[in-house]
Design a protein around this nucleic acid. Structure first.
Lengths: 247, 247
DNA sequence: TCAACACAAATTGTCGACAATTTTAAATCG
DNA sequence: CGATTTAAAATTGTCGACAATTTGTGTTGA
């Protein structure tokens, strides 16, 4: 109902990483924002691809104002790179940005775990996380890469939400989006580890109240993910990939 | 040269908290974004004030598109609150948001200090910070509240920049802006502590390589600042304050 | 053959007009 | 007199037109 017309596997997965009440975006700009955002996260839109306003308008039946508004917001989130008078492109994070994003994640997520462990009712909040990871595993096993990526991100965002801090939640949301972009650029699909195993490890340590263990598990998880990005070829995917957002 | 026309004390203070190269914003939208942003940070625009598009256009000689674009960006940064079909208002962070912002800051800034202390050449990077704090003290002593607030924010952003992580720097930039908003709402001017003293304390611990001391000083600084916000009256300032951005 | 130039096509930046909605004010009714 | 309804004014949302800039193509000249 949200995405007007698509019969792809993506339709089966609920959008889990959204912050605000997104029940049917009210205006075209918001609709487009999420449409493009999702497409980037799902890697249907690859880094470097040009997002021509007219094409967007045509594909999503909206006016240029709406398209421009959406692109501006995406640019603010570093999902899209707007070059004045040249147009908007899906952002292409470089090595330095990759390091910075992962470093920031290690810092913030370690702090989140700390806060979670200080909560008196932590145990009661964890079961839904378990179910989430189970969904993640299921998606992976049935080869539903799109749902898997979403749920994998959602795990981290949900962890932040559990800590009952909206600022942190939004922050993680942004960091996770940028991570998806990085993965789209640098990750080799075949070598990708099974994130859900590591997610489960984190949950297990949390349930046990094992502060050091949880921190180590998270640190390992993030470093593991970052290490996979070390692939030398920076231009592994051709930037001329067809703009096939809405085929 | 940057702010076209104003003879106020604000003109004397360089804008220190900006991230990207802001040498004369290229378009009207950006110009307006920073103009309003600065006005909010400097507390010339108070929380709750309505930002009518037409008034903005008139005041800054620009078209409505530019004004709308600027407002949209500000809304994305939580500096402005856009209510559909009703207009844009300077954001009014509530108690929960205040808690969340300060908690996030404690987490992130503690991590930043940790990273700084791990740098081999930290000592060489600190002298400029000292000068910054000196400027801060000078601004306070000559009663230049505007410059003081700016420099106080800049201190924290600069600390992040010293850690050589752009993601963290932007993050702190956003958190500091929101903090300014909170201060504008809840702080009692008379009771405001001398932040530069606490800033100096942090620097001293950093120079000594005193990890625990630096962390404690930062924690104290932030908690001290948050505590000042505990004033009961949430509507201390009338939201009908004249919209005197450009008198 | 290659470089520099000039022109045409495509794309982005900017703006004002019109429609939809909300707010304000006036008028009406109990 | 106060509450409700109605109309007018003000404000925001949306859109397409035009100007400015860039990109692509073809031509010229060394």
């Amino acid at each position: 109902m949200l995405h007007s017309a698509n019969g792809t596997s993506a339709a089966t997965a609920p959008r889990a990483s959204t912050l605000v009440g997104d029940g049917a975006p009210s205006n075209d700009a918001d609709r487009l924002y999420w449409e493009i955002f999702d497409a980037v996260i799902d890697q249907r839109l690859l880094p470097g691809v040009k997002l021509t306003e007219a094409v967007l308008c045509d594909a999503f039946q909206c006016s240029r104002s709406s398209a421009r508004s959406a692109l501006a917001q995406l640019a603010h989130d570093k999902i899209v790179d707007i070059q004045p008078n040249r147009g908007a492109f899906v952002a292409k994070p470089d090595e330095k940005e990759t390091r910075d994003v992962f470093e920031a994640r290690r810092m913030v997520e370690a702090a989140i775990l700390d806060k979670l462990l200080a909560l008196p009712d932590l145990a009661a909040r964890l079961p839904p996380m378990r179910r989430m990871v189970a969904d993640e595993r299921a998606a992976f096993e049935r080869g539903d890469r799109v749902s898997w990526i979403r749920l994998s991100n959602a795990f981290h965002v949900q962890l932040a939400r559990l800590a009952d801090n909206e600022v942190l939640t939004e922050l993680m949301h942004g960091l996770c989006s940028r991570t998806s972009l990085i993965i789209a650029l640098y990750d080799v699909p075949g070598r990708s580890a099974c994130s859900f195993d590591e997610h489960e490890a984190i949950l297990t340590r949390l349930e046990a109240g094992d502060r050091a263990g949880a921190a180590a598990a998270m640190h390992h998880h993030l470093e593991d993910c970052e290490r996979r990005m070390k692939v030398e070829a920076p231009g592994r995917l051709d930037p001329w990939t067809v703009f096939n957002l809405k085929r």
